[in-house]
Simulated scan of single mutants.
Amino acid sequence: MAGAAASRERWIDVAKGVSILLVVLHHAVVKNLPMEAPEALAGVVGGWDVVTTALKPVRMPLFFVLSGFVASRAVHRPWVQVRRRALTPYYTYVVWLLLLGAFFSVERLLPMNRTQDLGELGTDLVWASTGTWFLYALAVYFLLARLLSALPATWVLSGAVTLSVVSSELGIQEWNRFSVLFHFTYFALGALAPQVVRRVAERAPVPLPVLAAAYVGFTVLLWQLDLPTGVYLLLASGLGVPLGVRSAVVLARTTRPAQVLAWIGRRTLPVYVMHTAVLATLLHLPPVLDLESGSVLRGVLHPVVVTAIAVLVPLGAHAVLLRLGATWLFALPQRRPHPRPAPATRSGQASRRSTEACASTSEGPYQVSIRPSTSSLGERSASGPSSAVNS
């Protein structure tokens, strides 16, 4: 049973690792590559654009299905037990909205949805439009799923699908506010119908190569139909999300690749919030790969190398910041409970018994430690940032 649980956890972390890599690769393709590639490499730029566009029905839908799947038990718990889970993503969103807003008010080269003034900042606090919209969406989606958890899942999913379709008619497809409206369907699927996700992960009705070929053929067909963005993404993700889940399950059976992807998948938050700043900084440094020679090979490798840098640098910065105690950048600060003084006794045995009783109290399955050890505090600090973005 322990081995089966570990296997299930690994494929989820692997899938999250793949998702964040695809997000960074997408930004490396659409933001950095066109600005650094000469006209001679227009074909390479176009080819990469086709690849990252074809992955759009997989990238964020898979991320949100996983986020909802991990939160599927929490959405049915009492509010008092889950309020921190709802507050942490929004708190982190506000922190990085301010930090990145300050950064991109100075850095103006990278194509970004920037917060231009205090008015836009106020609007972003209510309805996200910048690159940190995923964190805002996590907070809002969790609250919606918790509020709607008493309703039949089919009702909620039908309403979410309708919202996804209608969002295409608002004329905001080029803004992240469209993404906030559109992707609730996937979080609701994972949170309110987790058995569907589990069934896809545990059963393989068709081999993975067949599923991949079907996805490619289906997306090509949908492109020809010139459908509204929301309709196209919903239909394509019907194969794209299962393809992502099954690919993660297969990758999780490997050794070294699974270890690397799962390790990244447990640290998606620092990569997500910091990678655009790294991409912007690279534009002001000597080129990673000199593309002026028109080398097709360099043009093909450029987004891959830039993605690697934009992932490794935030992970390194995250480790340093945690060592410096800057956990508030990645998780809502947690107040430490103060132990109640035990009544003085002649032998001190009553005091020890009182302390031990307090330390072992529990609320349901959750152990409550009054005086956590240094190692347990360190573990909570290290896991907090990952859970904030993946809950």
Rank of each mutant, 00 (worst) to 15 (best):
A357K: 15
R353M: 13
T361D: 13
S351H: 06
A357S: 15
S373C: 01
S381D: 08
S369N: 06
C358R: 15
L377Q: 10
S375G: 02
R352E: 13
P365N: 01
E356Q: 13
V368W: 05
G378M: 09
A359Y: 13
S360Y: 13
P372W: 06
S375P: 01
E379M: 03
S351E: 15
S362L: 06
S373E: 08
R353H: 12
P372A: 09
S375M: 06
E363K: 03
C358N: 13
R371M: 04
G364A: 04
S354E: 12
G364N: 01
A357L: 15
S360R: 15
S381Q: 05
S369R: 04
S351T: 11
Q367D: 08
V368S: 05
P365S: 07
T345G: 14
S373I: 00
I370T: 13
Q367G: 01
I370E: 11
R371Q: 05
I370D: 02
T355R: 15
E363D: 13
S354A: 14
R352V: 10
Q349R: 10
T361L: 14
E363S: 12
P365R: 05
S354C: 11
P365C: 02
L377M: 11
S375Y: 09
Q367R: 02
E363F: 09
S351P: 00
A357P: 11
R371W: 03
R371T: 10
T355Q: 14
S360N: 12
R380G: 04
R346F: 03
I370W: 12
E363R: 05
S369I: 01
A359V: 13
T361R: 15
S360P: 07
G378I: 04
T374Q: 11
G364H: 00
S360C: 10
E363N: 04
S373G: 12
C358A: 14
E363L: 10
G348A: 10
L377A: 02
R380H: 06
S381C: 07
G378N: 06
S373P: 04
